[in-house]
Simulated scan of single mutants.
Amino acid sequence: MAARRLVHDGLRILERNWRCSEGELDIVALDGETLAVCEVKTRSERAFQQPAEGIDRPKAERLRRLAERWLNERWPVHFEQLAQKVVGAVQATGTSDGPAPPPPGGVRIDLIAVVNRFRGAALIEHVRGAV
């Protein structure tokens, strides 16, 4: 549901459930030229805590570290694949003169809050730049 919502909002999904020894990123997507690292939090309608409350300071710091690690390990791969598709991007040459440039629009961490209701469809909210 979360990935469908992001695609509906105009984002392009690059990766889902990326794992490393330090943790997991739920969804990594491109929002125009901005890389959006998305944390999905699900709660029931009757839960004591709201989804956004599930991201405390330690979790936010871990997400920042994971985003940096993802960029170091995966962005060059995605950049080479996307360079020819993104308008105004540098042409992919097939050779590497160093690390790929960072996403032109920078990186942000978003929250996808999913509230499963007792009756009816889940409520989904996409909060850009939540962290």
Results as ranks from 00 to 15, higher is better:
Gly54Trp: 13
Thr93Gly: 03
Val77Arg: 15
Asp56Gln: 12
Ile109Cys: 11
Ala60Asn: 02
Gln91Lys: 12
Ala113Lys: 13
Ala67Asn: 07
Ile112Asp: 01
Pro99Met: 10
Glu53Phe: 06
Asp110Tyr: 13
Ala89Glu: 04
Val87Cys: 06
Val87Asp: 15
His78Met: 03
Leu30Cys: 08
Ala29Pro: 04
Val90Phe: 08
Val114Ser: 01
Pro102Ala: 09
Thr95Phe: 13
Leu111His: 09
Pro99His: 12
Arg69Tyr: 08
Val77Gly: 01
Arg43Gly: 00
Leu71His: 01
Leu25Met: 13
Gln84Ser: 12
Leu82Lys: 01
Lys41Trp: 15
Ala67Met: 01
Leu35Trp: 15
Thr42Leu: 03
His78Ser: 08
Val37Ser: 03
Gly106His: 07
Lys85Val: 11
Val87His: 14
Val86Tyr: 05
Gly105Arg: 07
Gly106Val: 04
Val86Leu: 14
Arg57Ile: 11
Ile109Val: 15
Pro76Cys: 11
Trp75Lys: 12
Ala113Leu: 03
Gly88Pro: 10
Gln81Lys: 14
Glu39Pro: 02
Arg64Leu: 07
Glu68Gly: 11
Glu45His: 03
Ser44Glu: 06
Val86Pro: 01
Asn116His: 10
Asp31Tyr: 05
Ala60Met: 03
Trp75Glu: 04
Pro103Met: 04
Asp31Leu: 10
Gly88Asp: 09
Ala92Gly: 05
Glu24Ala: 11
Leu25Cys: 08
Pro58Tyr: 02
Thr42Ser: 13
Val114Thr: 01
Glu39Asp: 12
Leu25Ser: 06
Thr95Leu: 11
Pro102His: 06
Val40Gln: 00
Glu68Phe: 07
Gly32Cys: 04
Lys41Phe: 06
Gly98Ile: 08
Val90Thr: 11
Trp75Gln: 08
Glu24Gly: 13
Thr93Leu: 15
Gly105Tyr: 06
Val37Ile: 15
Ala92Ser: 14
Gly105Lys: 08
Val28Gln: 01
Phe79Lys: 14
Gln49Ala: 05
Ile55Tyr: 01
Lys59Pro: 00
Glu39Arg: 14
Arg65Pro: 00
Asn116Ile: 07
Lys85Asn: 04
Asp110Asn: 05
Thr42Ala: 04
Ala113Asp: 15
Ala29Asn: 01
Gln50Thr: 11
Ala29Ser: 12
Asp110Met: 05
Ile112Pro: 00
Asp97Ala: 15
Val86Gly: 04
Arg57Ala: 14
His78Tyr: 14
Arg65Ser: 07
Lys41Ala: 09
Pro104Thr: 02
Pro51Ser: 07
Ala89Leu: 02
Glu53His: 12
Ala52Ser: 12
Phe79Pro: 02
Glu80Asp: 09
Leu111Phe: 14
Glu45Phe: 00
Arg65Asn: 11
Trp75Pro: 03
Arg74Gly: 00
Phe48Lys: 15
